[in-house]
């Protein structure tokens, strides 16, 4: 388990992480989402011990990660722009990681590379961006680290490879107890694989909870009400995150349990009433708009 306790990190005047507290359970896929510059990469680098938090601490399996080689060996970081040795081949990278990750599984690496039809002897600088990402993931998985930190790893991968990697993660979770922590802007991808999501904004964490729970607590309600003032009645019972009206059709994004909302439907006797679950992307946008992260007026 990774515990992030009141972690703050500042670069000059810029507050990259502001008193973040969260925990990442073992055996689950943790998705880290956030606006641009929210601090996702900083948090990732802090989790794997590259950055030392200015305040607070990060514990991996109960021990601080920074300068703790035993704990660091449980974590493998795939950065958004992974470094590969100049003129190096995948085997050069393997040799590097074998030095520091003694349990590196060369056999598995070769087999994975073969499956992905990637050469282990070709120079990495001739690889495409997507191939490099694949290589990074293969190195990470083969390192046998317990926690795999993937910063924007899915960006640049084609859909087939994305699915393959998702399946690989799931298999590794089942067989080896891998815990992937994935930071991405591609919420659609995360939605498929993540069980737990943390949302970062301006260095602070807005929430960190199970995706299912999250989805069960926020809905999109499309309705045609008999009287417009009935919206007020809804708002009194459920926090409305977003409201749109097109003619008689009202679209509300609101928090609440579906059973209570259905109960309200019976009370209000609307002309039309449809309760829809939100996608992760919609949840993200709604939460961000609440926080004032709204650029819909950009062209007005």
């Amino acid at each position: 388990m990774i515990e992030i306790k009141n972690v703050s990190k500042q670069f000059g005047d810029i507050i990259a992480l502001n008193n973040i507290t969260a925990s990442i359970e073992e055996g689950h896929v943790f998705g880290l989402i956030g606006t641009n510059g929210a601090g996702k990469s900083t948090l990732m680098r802090s989790i794997c011990g590259i950055y030392e938090p200015d305040r607070g601490c990060i514990l991996v399996d109960g021990e601080p990660i920074y300068e703790n080689t035993a704990m660091k060996s449980k974590v493998f970081f795939i950065s958004d722009d992974q470094y590969f040795f100049r003129n190096g081949t995948p085997m050069d990278m393997v040799r590097y990681y074998q030095t520091f990750y003694p349990d590196f599984d060369l056999k598995r690496f070769n087999s994975l590379m073969e499956s992905l039809q990637l050469s282990t002897t070709r120079k990495i600088n001739t690889f495409s961006k997507g191939m490099r990402k694949q290589l990074s993931v293969m190195l990470g998985v083969s390192s046998n680290a317990k926690y795999l930190l993937c910063d924007e790893t899915f960006d640049g991968l084609d859909p087939v490879i994305r699915q393959a990697i998702k399946r690989l993660f799931i298999r590794e979770m089942e067989e080896n107890g891998l815990t992937p922590i994935i930071a991405s802007h591609n919420l659609r991808e995360l939605e498929d694989i993540c069980e737990h999501v943390g949302l970062l904004h301006k260095g602070g964490i807005l929430f960190s909870r199970d995706l299912e729970t999250m989805k069960l607590g926020i809905f999109k309600l499309q309705c045609v009400l008999k009287h417009p003032e009935q919206i007020q009645q809804i708002a009194e019972q459920f926090p409305i995150l977003k409201q749109e009206m097109r003619g008689m059709l009202t679209t509300l994004t609101l928090r609440g349990e579906s059973s209570r909302i259905s109960k309200l439907q019976q009370e209000l006797e609307p002309v039309f009433w449809e309760l829809l679950p939100l996608t992760l992307e919609e949840i993200f946008i709604s939460e961000m708009e609440v926080k004032g992260y709204d650029f819909t007026n950009l062209y007005q």
């Binding site: 680098r45 794997c48 011990g49 590259i50 300068e67 080689t69 035993a70 704990m71 660091k72 060996s73 974590v75 493998f76 970081f77 950065s79 992974q82 470094y83 590097y96 520091f100 990750y101």
Partner: peptide, 9 residues
Amino acid sequence: DLYHSAPIT
């Protein structure tokens, strides 16, 4: 990132 994430003091 590569060097300092490696498990070595």
